[in-house]
């Protein structure tokens, strides 16, 4: 490399550096933590898969375990518990389907950032467990190869499989469970580059009236397509008004108002493919 070129490169780098000093980009402390974790775990080097529809979590069958309902609490991952023959939950599977691969990998980094032991969490590959594009292992008793949890990312889906009581026997085969979920991810169709990851579509969400008196019951119309798997509905509420939603006994829903004020009702439809869509409506709940 000649001297002139080297000087030019140095000048450019210095200029860029100075520019960076003049206009520093504020870093969200939590983003900084995530970046630090990414650096520790060298996530830019992780394999990157395709973008797919989410795995059909309802289709995941585990030998000797009975899967529960699919649930999503807030912005967290979709969760499904698996219980033993006695009805006791033994395994929790958490799934977060990202809009892209980066989002899923960030979710795995988030899990890793909240591991408080000082060393690096060992990889699944190092433990001889083929899993995902990259996976990690939480050992309960490594000498016995007894796992507490496994987490991995495959394509745009992050997964954590947790043994709820690692000391209990028989110990569930977390590897087989995680690999079953991994296989289900790979069975999901690839999504075209310009397309959205499939999610349930709330076709209609409407109330029979826009205003009511506190204490009244208001029929709701909720129609959700099942293109992303049979949806599970969850209702959330905002605003000064108060209420809850009940089944009307005929497959419909009814809003039971219990306090006056503007009430925003949000329906969250989570499909078995672990994606969620929401829709809201507003009702003015007047005094009784």
């Amino acid at each position: 490399m000649n001297t002139t070129l080297l000087r030019s490169i140095c000048a450019l780098l210095l200029g860029a550096s100075l520019l960076a000093q003049v206009a520093p980009v504020p870093v969200d402390p939590r983003e900084a933590l995530l970046q630090a974790t990414a650096k520790r775990y060298e996530s830019p080097a992780w394999a990157r898969g395709a973008r797919r529809a989410g795995p059909d979590l309802a289709a995941v069958a585990l030998r000797g375990l009975e899967g529960g309902a699919i649930e999503r609490l807030g912005a967290g991952p979709v969760q499904r518990f698996f219980a033993d023959a006695g009805g006791e939950n033994r395994v929790l599977v958490e799934v977060q389907v990202g809009t892209n691969v980066d989002a899923a990998q960030r979710h795995v980094l988030g899990w890793l950032t909240n591991v408080s032991s000082p060393g690096l969490v060992p990889t699944a590959a190092a433990a001889g467990i083929p899993l995902g594009d990259v996976g990690f292992v939480g050992w309960s008793k490594p000498a016995e190869r007894r796992l507490a949890w496994l987490l991995f990312v495959r394509d745009n889906t992050a997964v954590r499989v947790v043994c709820l009581d690692p000391a209990a026997n028989p110990h569930p085969d977390l590897t087989a469970i995680a690999q079953a979920v991994d296989a289900e991810i790979q069975r999901a169709p690839v999504v075209a580059a310009e397309a959205l990851v499939p999610a349930p579509k709330v076709v209609r969400f409407a109330a029979a009236v826009a205003r009511c008196r506190a204490g009244e019951r208001v029929p709701l119309q909720v129609t959700v397509d099942a293109a992303a798997g049979a949806p599970v509905l969850r209702f959330e509420f905002e605003g000064a008004g108060q209420g809850y939603v009940e089944s009307d006994g005929a497959g419909g829903h009814v809003l039971c108002t219990t306090g006056p004020g503007r009430l925003v009702v949000r329906v969250c439809a989570t499909g078995t493919r672990c994606t969620t869509s929401t829709a809201t409506l507003t009702i003015e709940v007047g005094p009784r």
Partner: peptide
């Protein structure tokens, strides 16, 4: 893991 868990995951 000395109590049966793992490495301090949340």
């Amino acid at each position: 893991n000395i109590l049966g868990g793992d490495g301090g995951a949340s």
